[in-house]
Amino acid sequence: MSQAVLAPQMSIDTPFPYDGPAALREPVEAALRRVIDPELALTIVDVGLIYGVAIDAAQARVTMTMTSPACPVTDVILDDVHDELARVLPDGMAIDTQLVWEPAWHSDRLSPRARLFMGW
């Protein structure tokens, strides 16, 4: 993926880079917002775990990270991402979640909503 997909900053309007059909952008974002990081009680989008989404005719690729390589709920989150995306993507579309550690997650990735929730 290009460096643009791994951009470290988020905004309210574009919480993560998206490359794919316009009709899927909102359903995909909504699906990812339904995935909760159980340790923080916040969506993975608000925590800033999603580095980018790319969708073509055959597959949806989600590049994401965790707040730490030692995150004890990584498998739960990855399963939830797959399950939520499967609900909104066309039948038969492959879902590829790529867990990356570079760039490392940093609290700068937290959304304004997450910062408010955490009292920052």
Score class of each variant (00 low, 15 high):
residue 26 E to G: 05
residue 40 L to W: 10
residue 26 E to T: 09
residue 54 A to D: 14
residue 38 P to T: 01
residue 31 A to F: 13
residue 39 E to K: 13
residue 34 R to V: 03
residue 18 Y to H: 01
residue 40 L to D: 06
residue 28 V to K: 02
residue 38 P to F: 00
residue 12 I to D: 12
residue 50 I to P: 07
residue 40 L to H: 12
residue 16 F to R: 00
residue 42 L to G: 03
residue 39 E to S: 08
residue 28 V to Q: 02
residue 12 I to H: 11
residue 11 S to K: 12
residue 23 A to I: 09
residue 51 Y to Q: 09
residue 45 V to W: 01
residue 38 P to W: 03
residue 47 V to A: 06
residue 44 I to S: 03
residue 11 S to F: 05
residue 49 L to T: 11
residue 47 V to Y: 12
residue 24 L to I: 12
residue 17 P to R: 12
residue 20 G to V: 03
residue 42 L to M: 14
residue 29 E to K: 12
residue 39 E to I: 07
residue 38 P to L: 06
residue 54 A to Y: 09
residue 47 V to S: 10
residue 20 G to T: 04
residue 45 V to Y: 06
residue 27 P to F: 08
residue 30 A to R: 14
residue 48 G to F: 01
residue 52 G to M: 02
residue 12 I to Q: 14
residue 39 E to G: 15
residue 30 A to T: 15
residue 23 A to W: 09
residue 14 T to C: 11
residue 36 I to A: 10
residue 33 R to G: 12
residue 17 P to D: 03
residue 33 R to N: 15
residue 19 D to E: 11
residue 46 D to I: 09
residue 30 A to I: 04
residue 49 L to Q: 09
residue 10 M to V: 07
residue 45 V to D: 00
residue 24 L to S: 12
residue 24 L to V: 11
residue 22 A to P: 05
residue 30 A to Q: 13
residue 54 A to S: 15
residue 14 T to D: 12
residue 42 L to V: 05
residue 36 I to Q: 15
residue 38 P to S: 08
residue 25 R to P: 04
residue 54 A to V: 14
residue 41 A to Q: 14
